[in-house]
Design a protein around this nucleic acid. Structure first.
Length: 108
DNA sequence: AACGTGACACAGC
DNA sequence: AGCTGTGCCACGT
């Protein structure tokens, strides 16, 4: 069975991201208590299971840094636009408006 | 057991 | 205002 790894927690939180919303690696890392390990979150997404909407996870500036990891880089922006999210130059516009904080949403 | 890595974040210039 | 360098923690080999 799966061992309770940091990665698993990242996947769990990522899957909790509501439709039309996005979050940052740092927010997830902070929520998991590993504040500062934002890099770890990105690396966790390296295993990016299909059940995890990785396209909703971007860096703190709303930049689609992980697009290169998708099967098709353009797919990430397409998915975001499909969720009513405006993406310009691989960057999310009104990022603050679409920003979803797990710590706030989960009410911790 | 140790070193290197990694889709970031922050501070400084 | 944008770019560069450093720090960070946990996983893989």
């Amino acid at each position: 069975m799966d061992k309770p790894s940091f990665f698993q927690d990242v996947y769990e939180v990522a899957k909790l991201i509501p439709y039309g919303k996005v979050t940052t690696y740092g927010a997830i890392a902070t929520y998991l208590g590993a504040k500062g390990s934002a890099r770890m979150v990105g690396w966790a997404m390296n295993g990016c299971p299909a059940e995890v909407p990785a396209h909703r996870v971007v860096n703190r500036i709303g930049l689609l840094t992980g697009k290169h990891h998708f099967h098709e880089p353009n797919r990430m922006q397409e998915l975001l636009e499909s969720e009513n999210i405006t993406v310009k130059d691989d960057k999310i516009e009104n990022f603050d408006y679409y920003f979803w904080d797990p710590m706030l949403a989960l009410g911790l």
